[in-house]
């Protein structure tokens, strides 16, 4: 009996080892569902996960944060000005946090010879990462974009993505943490096994944060079934979103021009 148990253990161990080993760490393609529960950018107060640390606000950053009225987190209220409820683009950082509950907390990565594309299910948005060695543009010389401008490179088996040129109207998460047009974002992706992708983001934004501010480790699981299904095509439709916001009396309407 003991020999049988040992044999079964050995078979399972080898099978597991094989599954873990049969992947290319530089192949990040697929649908990745967030498996770590934090809905905020980092372990900030109210994120409910272990020891929390407030963001390293500057005085201006604190002022900007106070001006944001979220419907989530410890500062949530019934009167909001969240871009999410106004059908405005979420912005790259918020997309990468995949803050929406399942099954929408997901993105797809498609790798092309010279670019990596990321498709975000919620709000049907996407972004490109140029992998051809080009330099980032001077953010002062370009018009800010909601998802910025991104270039990537490999450091060993870690994909490092640097981005600049962000529209400052988006929030970095649903708790209302702000950023400015001066934000520089670095993402570090690592496929740790066949089924798991890890992402850590670091924001450098001297206008808002006194020191570079890193996220917690976002962990995603490969969803092979999703690759066989039709895309959800979740847009924000003003004729649907705005009546809902009025219905729940969120105050989350755009100011009159």
């Amino acid at each position: 009996m003991r020999r049988l148990a040992l044999l079964i253990f050995a078979v399972v161990f080898v099978a597991g080892l094989s599954a873990r080993q049969t992947f290319d760490p530089r192949d990040l393609s697929g649908h990745w569902d967030r498996s770590t529960p934090i809905v905020s950018f980092s372990n900030v107060p109210g994120s409910g996960r272990g020891a929390t640390v407030e963001a390293p606000f500057t005085a201006e950053g604190k002022r900007m944060n106070d001006a944001n009225k979220p419907g989530y987190g410890p500062r949530r209220g019934t009167t909001r000005n969240d871009p999410l409820g106004r059908c405005e683009p979420l912005g790259l950082v918020r997309h990468l946090s995949t803050e929406i509950v399942e099954p929408h907390n997901t993105f797809e990565i498609v790798q092309l010879p010279n670019r990596i594309l990321q498709f975000f299910e919620y709000r049907h948005d996407w972004r490109e990462i140029w992998m051809d060695g080009r330099a980032l543009p001077d953010p002062k010389a370009v018009d800010p974009k909601w998802n910025g401008f991104s270039v990537g490179r490999w450091e060993g088996d870690t994909l490092v993505v640097d981005s600049v040129g962000f529209d400052g109207r988006s929030w970095v998460d649903k708790f209302g943490y702000p950023h400015s047009e001066d934000m520089r974002l670095q993402e570090r992706y690592r496929r740790v096994d066949a089924e798991t992708l890890e992402l850590v983001m670091t924001i450098t934004d001297p206008v808002v944060y006194a020191t570079p501010w890193s996220s917690d480790v976002k962990r995603m699981k490969l969803n092979r079934e999703k690759a066989k299904r039709w895309d959800e095509q979740i847009y924000c439709v003003p004729s649907e979103e705005f009546p809902f916001q009025r219905l729940i009396q969120s105050g989350n309407t755009l100011p009159e021009p």
Partner: peptide, 18 residues
Amino acid sequence: FGFLLVTPVLAHHGGGVE
């Protein structure tokens, strides 16, 4: 943390706010 475990709705937006 314990509160969030037993009240998943309140961990998200609508429930506890509105």
